[in-house]
């Protein structure tokens, strides 16, 4: 029996037609594109195959929207603050915050899985690719964002039937005004779904970069609950996701400061304004700045000669190995 297996293995190994001319693979622009595409595609495939993850990524914000927001509607009155031009229901107010939550959970899940998911060792496999690390890590980050976009728009699609829709005058792409307008006029609510897209991408990248950096410095995590307690909950609650900042200032100036310096607040505000076709410049600069810093830190940390992994005995290679 055993010899049979061995002989079969030998025979097929001998006749297999690949191998080995050892010509170096071309490493032009196309090779980079193939690599990028492969990494993003894998993230998306994995996500689609993990049905429970998809489901929980969807149920989580929906529970907040359907139950929490409905209950809190009477407790918390939201006055008219930009970008809103009328009184809005609490559900409408927290929707950008919930989009931020989707991004936050997704970022932590996809990046931190590398720390504790030793079963797959996916990071090691990624890092032996001949492409530069900054490119591999950035591609991985964009793969995570692609997955987040799927979740965000599925959530928005369901929320649409709950009457969460952006309502502002049609987005006009073209030249001229009034009768002389030539171009594409995109009516509400479609306009908001389009203008929110770049905000989602930018905020997703920033949170993903943060998680990527964390995955390089945190050596071990018992489970996801630790991340929830120490990262996700503080970031989410100390932000403008659930309540406007001026309300927080009324109760605690210190907490207000904390929320103001929380990058997540700016991610949420960026999304909130973009949903209504507006650019919140402060939020934009804050999110972009944080993205640059976090991504730089992550690339530094994963750099084999400078990073922290070697000194700490990083993922999958403890000193006992």
């Amino acid at each position: 029996m055993t010899t049979k297996i061995v002989e079969a293995a030998k025979a097929s190994a001998r006749k297999a037609s690949i191998i080995i001319d050892r010509a170096p693979e071309p490493h032009g622009v196309f090779a980079y594109y193939n690599c990028f595409k492969g990494i993003v595609w894998r993230e998306v495939l994995r996500f689609l195959h993990q049905r429970e993850r998809f489901l929980s990524a969807l149920v989580r914000p929906l529970v907040w929207l359907f139950i929490f927001a409905a209950g809190f509607r009477q407790v918390l009155g939201i006055s008219i603050i930009p970008p809103y031009e009328t009184y809005v229901l609490y559900e409408t107010y927290i929707t950008p915050g919930l989009l931020g939550m989707v991004l936050l959970f997704n970022a932590m899940q996809s990046s931190l899985s590398m720390v504790y998911d030793r079963e797959t060792g996916a990071m090691r496999t990624l890092l032996v690719s001949p492409f530069p690390r900054w490119f591999l890590l950035s591609s991985k980050l964009l793969g995570g964002v692609a997955v987040a976009i799927l979740q965000v728009y599925t959530f928005l699609f369901i929320a649409y039937f709950w009457d969460i829709q952006p309502d502002w005058p049609a987005l006009q792409l073209g030249i001229g005004e009034g009768d002389g307008f030539v171009g594409l006029s995109i009516p509400s609510p479609l306009n908001g779904y389009i203008t929110v897209f770049p905000a989602i991408v930018l905020a997703g990248l920033m949170l993903g970069a943060l998680a990527l950096f964390m995955s390089s410095v945190i050596r071990q995590l018992e489970n996801f609950a630790g991340v929830m307690n120490f990262v996700i909950f503080p970031m989410f609650f100390a932000s403008s996701a659930l309540y406007p900042l001026w309300k927080i200032r009324e109760s605690s100036p210190l907490l207000y400061e904390l929320c103001w310096w929380n990058p997540f607040t700016h991610a949420v505000e960026l999304i909130r304004f973009a949903f209504y076709g507006q650019l919140n410049l402060v939020a934009f600069l804050a999110v972009t700045g944080c993205l640059v810093v976090f991504l730089g830190a992550a690339i530094y940390a994963y750099n084999p000669s400078k990073g922290l992994i070697g000194r700490r005995g990083g993922p999958g290679a403890g000193p006992k190995g």
């Binding site: 693979e25 071309p26 490493h27 196309f30 090779a31 980079y32 193939n34 690599c35 595409k37 492969g38 990494i39 595609w41 894998r42 496999t125 990624l126 690719s129 001949p130 492409f131």
Partner: peptide, 9 residues
């Protein structure tokens, strides 16, 4: 996926 990591189409 692995082939893509090495830049193959």
């Amino acid at each position: 996926y692995h082939a893509a990591l090495h830049g193959l189409g």
